[in-house]
C-alpha cells in the first residue's frame, strides 16, 4: 500500500530534519539538558540518522518555511477544538436514550500528495465530529458518518470537513 504513494526524493535538509526530531525526542524522554545526556543523544541521533535517514521517508512531505511553526500551531489549535466538539457531540448521542445515529459511507478525494499529509488528514477526520476514516487508498479516503442529517448532500458535507483541514495541512505539507 505504501509503495503506491508518491514519495518525494530524500535530500540533505530531510536528514537534518530527522536528526532534529530525534534529538528533540531524546531530550523530552530524558527530561534533562545535562551535557552528558546531550552528547549521548547527539551521538545516538546522528547514528540513527546516518543508518536509517534515507529510509525514514514518512517525514519527507514536510514543507519548510519560517511560517511553518505558526501553521502547525494553528492546525493543532483548530484540531483540539474539533476534538472537543466531537466528544461533546458523541457524549450527547451516547447519553440520549434513543441513541440518534444515522450511519453513512462516503468516498472523497484529497489533493495532499505525501504519505504524512494523507496520514494526518485521515487522523484528523477520525477525530473530528461524527466521522471516521476507514481506508486510504491512493488519493481516495473512505469515510464513515455516525449521523448525517437527512436531506443534506453527503458528498458535499464530507468534502467541506476535509477541505478546511486539508487547507491548513497543505500550508506545511505537500
Amino acid at each position: 500500500m505504501e509503495d503506491s504513494l508518491d514519495t518525494p526524493p530524500v535530500s540533505l535538509s530531510h536528514h537534518v530534519f530527522v536528526f532534529g526530531i530525534l534529538l528533540l525526542l531524546w531530550v523530552l524522554l530524558t527530561g534533562s539538558l545535562d551535557v552528558q545526556e546531550l552528547v549521548a543523544g547527539t551521538v545516538v541521533s546522528l547514528a540513527v540518522t546516518l543508518l536509517f535517514g534515507s529510509r525514514f521517508t514518512i517525514l519527507t512531505g514536510f514543507r519548510f518555511s519560517w511560517l511553518a511553526p505558526i501553521y502547525v500551531l494553528t492546525y493543532l489549535g483548530n484540531f483540539f477544538i474539533a476534538l472537543l466538539r466531537a466528544n461533546l457531540d458523541l457524549a450527547g448521542r451516547v447519553l440520549s436514550p434513543s441513541l440518534p445515529i444515522n450511519p453513512a459511507l462516503v468516498e472523497i478525494r484529497t489533493s495532499l500528495k505525501s504519505p504524512l499529509g494523507r496520514l494526518l488528514l485521515a487522523n484528523t477526520i477520525t477525530l473530528t465530529p461524527g466521522t471516521l476514516t476507514i481506508d486510504v487508498e491512493d488519493d481516495r479516503l473512505l469515510v464513515h458518518w455516525v449521523y448525517y442529517p437527512p436531506g443534506t448532500d453527503l458528498q458535499q458535507a464530507t468534502e467541506q470537513i476535509s477541505a478546511s483541514f486539508e487547507r491548513r495541512l497543505s500550508r506545511f505539507l505537500i
Partner: peptide
C-alpha cells in the same frame, strides 16, 4: 464502525 467512533474519540 459506530463503536470505533465512540471508543477512539473519547479515549483519546
Amino acid at each position: 464502525y459506530n463503536r470505533l467512533q465512540a471508543g477512539t474519540k473519547a479515549a483519546t
